Computed example of a mutant assay.
Amino acid sequence: MSNGAHEIIFRPGLEGVPVTHSAICDIDGLNGHLSYRGYSIEDLAAHSTFLETAYLLIWGELPTEEQLHDFEAEVQRHRRVSFRVRDMMKCFPATGHPMDALQSSAASLGLFYSRRAIDRPKYVYDAVIRLIAKIPTMVAAFQLIRKGQDPIQPRDDLAYSANFLYMLTEREPDPIAARIFDRCLILHAEHSLNASTFSARVTASTLTDPYAVVASAVGTLAGPLHGGANEDVLAMLEEISSPDQAAAYLKKAVENKQKIMGFGHREYRVKDPRASILQGLAEEMFARFGRDDMYDVATALEREASSLLAVKGIYPNVDFYSGLVYRKLGIPRDLFTPVFAISRVAGWLAHWREQLGANRIFRPSQIYTGKVTRAWCPVEERTLEMDA
């Protein structure tokens, strides 16, 4: 379509259209490589912690021992939320979705802390601390509140991931379980310009406060085309029910052109590197705490898919094994996406800071397809046929 001096190329969903420069995350989808700030996801999952990885994403470099100690201490000190936030959450309907509760709660933090002083380094640092610290507390709080219980206060003697599992399940987690959960958070912390991260950058470009930025990202993540796929994977595995049914299920789904949950990714043409790590974490969980029969169904389905789907570049993605790990950790199924948000807030904040560094408000164009040159008609002369 022509627009005077140049041709406009329309790409639905902005697919393949670069909209910003970024030094945060690099994805090589052809070879299955993912890195944060140049560090491979394999190395980070094996050697780092979530808070150390969050620091890397947001500030650009791995912290020194002193910087990491101070960062962890600040996050620990700000885990608690105001009683006013808790009272607000008690007014939410128990039947409400946890993602809606999280979006409202995250936005409410702006009432307490926002001064839109984004030109002040201390304000930026404090906002990062508060959001990373308080998001897990609010997720766990709503889980207990909707069950008619009072939220559990954070424990200062527990590390970040162990503390969340404690607040959620009301018991101190096994150290191995806490470490596996921490590694899961690392794997989900960042993944380039997906829908929620793009939403965060668009909101950030208006120079609003970071609490609104995170709330907008949570709202975007709540959509079924972005978050919640690992919930659907578990439902699919339960429908298949046994390994010997995997081949028939897959054959029928392919014939009916039905989406296979947990398979395929817009970025990857090989197995998602995060899926490989999560599969290993699932096996660690089962070795320690007992096997999940649905894991055998999952591996059988992956084997069958290697001949039917791999030729099309369709392999397991990050959602295929994560639900099995979360279920074994005692996380309710409808909290899988809020847990994703606990992790991804690190990536959202990294993109918020990067956007502020070279900001220009997002204002894409459009191709108008509506009616033109219409004559005004008085209301008494209008008919339904006129709008047909």
Results as ranks from 00 to 15, higher is better:
residue 130 R to I: 04
residue 65 E to L: 11
residue 130 R to F: 01
residue 113 Y to P: 14
residue 168 L to T: 02
residue 76 Q to Y: 13
residue 76 Q to A: 15
residue 111 L to W: 04
residue 91 C to D: 12
residue 103 Q to Y: 08
residue 80 R to A: 15
residue 88 M to Q: 07
residue 84 R to L: 08
residue 124 V to E: 11
residue 122 K to T: 14
residue 161 S to E: 10
residue 168 L to Y: 02
residue 91 C to Q: 14
residue 153 Q to Y: 07
residue 134 K to H: 00
residue 108 S to Q: 03
residue 125 Y to E: 10
residue 79 R to P: 08
residue 86 R to A: 09
residue 116 R to W: 12
residue 85 V to F: 04
residue 109 L to Y: 04
residue 95 T to Q: 09
residue 153 Q to V: 01
residue 63 P to D: 08
residue 79 R to D: 12
residue 61 E to Y: 00
residue 155 R to K: 05
residue 104 S to V: 01
residue 127 A to S: 15
residue 84 R to W: 03
residue 90 K to C: 08
residue 110 G to T: 03
residue 171 R to I: 10
residue 90 K to N: 09
residue 157 D to R: 06
residue 73 A to F: 04
residue 171 R to Y: 07
residue 154 P to L: 10
residue 146 R to E: 11
residue 107 A to T: 13
residue 114 S to H: 01
residue 118 I to M: 12
residue 162 A to P: 13
residue 72 E to P: 08
residue 122 K to S: 03
residue 168 L to F: 00
residue 61 E to S: 01
residue 166 Y to G: 10
residue 137 T to Q: 13
residue 89 M to D: 14
residue 144 L to Q: 12
residue 170 E to V: 02
residue 138 M to S: 05
residue 84 R to Y: 07
residue 123 Y to M: 12
residue 110 G to M: 03
residue 87 D to L: 13
residue 68 L to E: 11
residue 159 A to Y: 12
residue 119 D to P: 01
residue 85 V to D: 02
residue 74 E to T: 09
residue 82 S to L: 07
residue 167 M to V: 06
residue 84 R to P: 00
residue 144 L to W: 07
residue 116 R to Y: 11
residue 150 D to S: 12
residue 162 A to I: 07
residue 62 L to F: 06
residue 167 M to F: 13
residue 138 M to F: 03
residue 100 D to K: 05
residue 144 L to I: 02
residue 88 M to Y: 14
residue 83 F to V: 01
residue 95 T to N: 07
residue 74 E to C: 13
residue 88 M to A: 15
residue 80 R to H: 03
residue 63 P to I: 04
